[in-house]
C-alpha cells in the first residue's frame, strides 16, 4: 500500500530471496512501465500454480503491468482460478467470500478515501464470470448502482473452470460442457448492457490477443474510477482445459472469438472523457479545436 512497504529494513536485504531483491530494485514500483518494455524489468507477478498456457494468466499478468500505480493498488478477488495468480503478486490481495468481492471493494474504496484523502489509492476487483455474474451478481450490480469508485474486471472464461466445467451465466447458448451434457438452454448474460444501465462511467471488452489494448483499457478504467465512477472491463480469457483448446492454439482461439462475439467495444461517458483529458493528458479526448477557416 506504500512504496516503503516493499523496501528492506536496512541491513536485512541480503537475507531476502533474489526474486524479492530484484523486485524492489528493478520492479515497476514508483516508475512508469509499459507492455512494450516487458522482459527488461522485474514483474510484480511471480510464479503461480495456474495451468500451462492459460489465457487468464496472460490477462492477469498484463493487468499487473498496466496498473498506473502498483504500489498504491489493492486487488480484490474471490473463489475461482483467477485468485491463484492474482494472489501471487506484490500487490495486497483481499479474498472476498464467494460473491462478496464488490461489497468488500466498496468498503475498502470508501475507507481508503477517508484515510488518504486526495492521494489516489486504486481498488481493482478481478473475479471470474461465476463469481461476478452468478453468485456475486447482486453485489456487483448494487456497487454500480451506488456509484462506488473502483474498477471491476470480469475474467470471463464462459465456464466454472475450477470446479469441473459447470455452465455459468456467461456460457453461450447451446454450449456442451462436462457438467452440462445437454447444452446450455439460455442466452449469455449481457453484462455490458447491464453495466451501462447501472451507470458505469467506462465499459469495455478486451481479449488478451492484443496486449497493448489490454494495457490501455485497464489504465483508462483505473484512472476514471479514481474520480468519476464505477468502471467495468469484461475480458475473454479462455479455459483451455474445459474447452479442450491445445495450449499452442490458445491465441488462435482468442482471435477467432474476438472476431466472432468479443469484438472490441468501448463505452465512455463525456464526464470520464473530460477527466482523462484534463488530468491525465489523453489527447484524443481533448475538445476538438474549431475548424480553421480556409480561403479557397
Amino acid at each position: 500500500m506504500s512504496l516503503d512497504y516493499v523496501k528492506f529494513t536496512p541491513g536485512f536485504g541480503k537475507f531476502m530471496p533474489k526474486e524479492y531483491r530484484d523486485m524492489v530494485e528493478h520492479g515497476p514500483f514508483g516508475k512508469k512501465t509499459a507492455v512494450s518494455q516487458v522482459g527488461t524489468f522485474k514483474e510484480i507477478m511471480e510464479e503461480h500454480p495456474m495451468c500451462a498456457g492459460c489465457a487468464m494468466t496472460l490477462f492477469i499478468r498484463l493487468a499487473f503491468i498496466a496498473f498506473p500505480n502498483p504500489e498504491d493498488t489493492i486487488t480484490v478477488g474471490t473463489a475461482g482460478c483467477g485468485r491463484l495468480a492474482i494472489s501471487q503478486a506484490a500487490v495486497p490481495f483481499v479474498y472476498g467470500n464467494y460473491g462478496d468481492q464488490n461489497g468488500v471493494a466498496s468498503g475498502l474504496s470508501r475507507g481508503l478515501r477517508l484515510r488518504f484523502g486526495d492521494k489516489p489509492k486504486d481498488v481493482v476487483v478481478m473475479a471470474g464470470d461465476g463469481g461476478m455474474a452468478d453468485i456475486g451478481f447482486a453485489q456487483t450490480l448494487h456497487s454500480w448502482f451506488r456509484k462506488e469508485k473502483f474498477t471491476t474486471i470480469m475474467l470471463d472464461n464462459e465456464v466454472y473452470g475450477n470446479t469441473g466445467g459447470q455452465e455459468s451465466g456467461m456460457t453461450n447458448k447451446g454450449q456442451v460442457l462436462k457438467m452440462a451434457p445437454l447444452g446450455k438452454k439460455f442466452e449469455k448474460m449481457d453484462m455490458l448492457g447491464m453495466a451501462k444501465v447501472a451507470g458505469c462511467a467506462y465499459v469495455a471488452t478486451v481479449v488478451p490477443n492484443n496486449p497493448r489494448r489490454v494495457e490501455s483499457v485497464i489504465k483508462k478504467a483505473i484512472l476514471i474510477a479514481r474520480e468519476v465512477g464505477p468502471t467495468y472491463i469484461q475480458a475473454y480469457t479462455s479455459c483451455n482445459i474445459e474447452y479442450a483448446i491445445p495450449t499452442d492454439q490458445v491465441m488462435q482461439d482468442a482471435k477467432d472469438v474476438e472476431n466472432d462475439r468479443y469484438k472490441f467495444q468501448e463505452y465512455i461517458t463525456d464526464e470520464a472523457k473530460e477527466h482523462l483529458a484534463t488530468l491525465y493528458g489523453y489527447k484524443e479526448y481533448l475538445p476538438k479545436p474549431a475548424a480553421a477557416v480556409t480561403k479557397g
Binding site: 522482459g39 527488461t40 507477478m45 496472460l58
Partner: peptide, 18 residues
C-alpha cells in the same frame, strides 16, 4: 518485435537482452 515477451502467460519467463 518482442512479441513473445508480451504473450507469455508466465511472468519473468521470456526476458529480453537489448
Amino acid at each position: 518485435c518482442k512479441l513473445c515477451t508480451q504473450y507469455c502467460p508466465e511472468a519473468n519467463t521470456i526476458q529480453y537482452d537489448t
